[in-house]
Amino acid sequence: MMVELGQYIPGTSCIHYLDPRAKLLGLFFYGLALLLAPTGITASLTGAAILPVIVLAGLAPSFIWRQLKPLLVFLVIIFFLQVALTPGEIIAAIGPLRITREGLDYGIMALARVFFLIVAASVLMATTDPLALADGLERLLRPGQRFGLPSVELALMLTLALRFVPTLLEEAERIMRAQVARGATFRGSQVKNLMPLIIPLFISAFRRAEGLAEAMEARAYRGGKGRTRMRELHFKPADYIFLLLAVLLVAGTAYYRLGFGS
């Protein structure tokens, strides 16, 4: 019951106020900069650019922690794999594990890239209404229509997913309870034990998809062709400034990557 979708936290900060397209592009540039940063330290410094955004967005520090907690193990594994598997100058050895200078640097770099990208994506989700996000994505992909990219359909799929996740979660919970009432335990790792949950959920999802397709058709939907949108998006000066900063970040890391900085 009462499933709250996503991590969108409504607010009135200047980050909330930015055009979703600016934020999407910003995220893209930020990710590019993280990839271009050539060392652990530059990647960390590049990544730190998200910190003022978090402050401006009025998000609590605990916000970052909550996003990362489920991924902690994954991050630790990435770090140690890089540290352990990179050959080079040995600076320490713990048992059979040899830590190299290069390994440590790669480890930090990989960690910084994944860590900050997740944080930035969470900030985007937290400060942008999912609908606006889908709208923004549609507009950004619109030029692709000429090359056969179904941008309207993609955006619609995204909104439909947003619309139906809570409904299907509620349904999953109800079906699970119904099977528990029939003595199911859902214990053990065998897929077989999950069938009483998975099959009804699939059937229901298909039935819903069918009903939905029919309902959309009945409301004169015929694909993206001829479809207009109620919501309009406008770039404001703040959006240009934000994008300029993001581009500068890419330029900075590119500068280092090309070897001018070291």
Partner: peptide, 16 residues
Amino acid sequence: WHKVGMVFQQPEQQLF
């Protein structure tokens, strides 16, 4: 609890 049976709303949705 096994002596208490529960039929949910639209129970046909639990058939599998």
